[in-house]
């Protein structure tokens, strides 16, 4: 798949590869990228350090202890909130990315058509409206639906998340598609490949980096949402950010850091596996 995405990269390794990396070099870019990585991870290091703080403070260090990991494991509220957060984020990411990919395919690489700008504006509309306003109005709408149909449940929360995740998934996919070369697809079509085959074998692989970026963005946006969730969530649908919000007045404890650290560790394990499996398949 990756090979199709970058035909040039399929070239043999060795001297040519070195030449290519050199070609790609821009002065100062690599150091800046490392600055960026340090910038992103320095606070994370602090956060992890404080998860081992013996004290109940997230700002004043005392002694090393596993105390908060034990507490987090024993805390049903935190456990449930974490599970709900991930459920909602997964469903919202899935649907929003599919919708966004389809919409991106329809709004790029065509001759300008009537309604194109409007479609673009509508897809991005959830981005424009401040969250609290969307939250209040969505609550009103959902209540009407609930009363009319009698259906309740976490589906509403997932739906609300899907809506505001769409633009975040759409943007990178669109950026990927814009100016993308049509030659490969046309060549495939000229060889009488059915349109769906063309899409699956040619367009989708070319799109993959954009889709991957979209998935990641939609996921973190859903995972961090506070206000819309606060108003739309029903009984038993407390997400992690809502749980944490409730702690501000009484002081946040390192329990949250412990949970965050565990999540980071878990996702790191996943990436590593993902990477290793991918490598194995290659060789």
């Amino acid at each position: 798949m990756a090979d199709a995405a970058a035909p040039a990269a399929a070239a043999p390794a060795g001297r040519r590869a070195r030449l290519r990396t050199d070609l790609r070099h821009q002065p100062g870019f690599t150091p800046m990228a490392w600055v960026c990585i340090v910038f992103l991870y320095a606070p994370i290091a602090v956060l992890i350090a404080f998860s081992f703080n013996d004290n109940r403070s997230v700002v004043r260090w005392t002694e090393f202890s596993f105390r908060w990991y034990v507490e987090a494991f024993g805390n049903e509220g935190i456990r449930n909130a974490t599970v709900i957060s991930f459920q909602v984020a997964t469903v919202a990411t899935l649907f929003s990315t599919i919708f966004a990919t389809m919409a991106a395919l329809a709004t790029t690489r065509t001759r300008p058509y009537r309604g194109q700008t409007l479609a673009y504006a509508i897809v991005n509309q959830p981005l424009m409206v401040p969250e609290i306003v969307t939250a209040v109005a969505t609550l009103a709408l959902f209540t009407i639906i609930k009363k009319a149909t009698g259906i309740t449940g976490i589906g509403y929360l997932m739906l609300a998340h899907t809506v505001f995740c769409i633009p975040f998934a759409y943007m990178p996919i669109r950026a990927r598609l814009e100016d993308m070369n049509l030659t490969l697809e046309q060549a495939a079509a000229d060889l009488y490949a059915p349109p769906f085959q063309v899409f699956r074998r040619v367009t989708l692989p070319l799109l993959m980096p954009g889709i991957f970026a979209g998935v990641m963005l939609a996921f973190v946006v859903s995972l961090d949402d506070v206000i819309i969730t606060l108003l739309v969530a029903g009984p038993g649908e407390t997400t992690l950010p809502i749980y944490i919000l409730g702690q501000i007045r009484r002081g946040i404890t390192p329990e949250i850091n412990a949970v965050s650290t565990l999540l980071l560790g878990l996702s790191l394990i996943f990436v590593t596996l993902f990477f290793l499996i991918g490598k194995q398949r290659k060789t």
């Binding site: 956060l47 973190v220 961090d224 950010p241 944490i244 946040i252 996702s267």
Partner: peptide, 8 residues
């Protein structure tokens, strides 16, 4: 890093 909570 963004899998952790914004507040924390």
């Amino acid at each position: 890093p963004f899998w952790t909570n914004l507040l924390i």
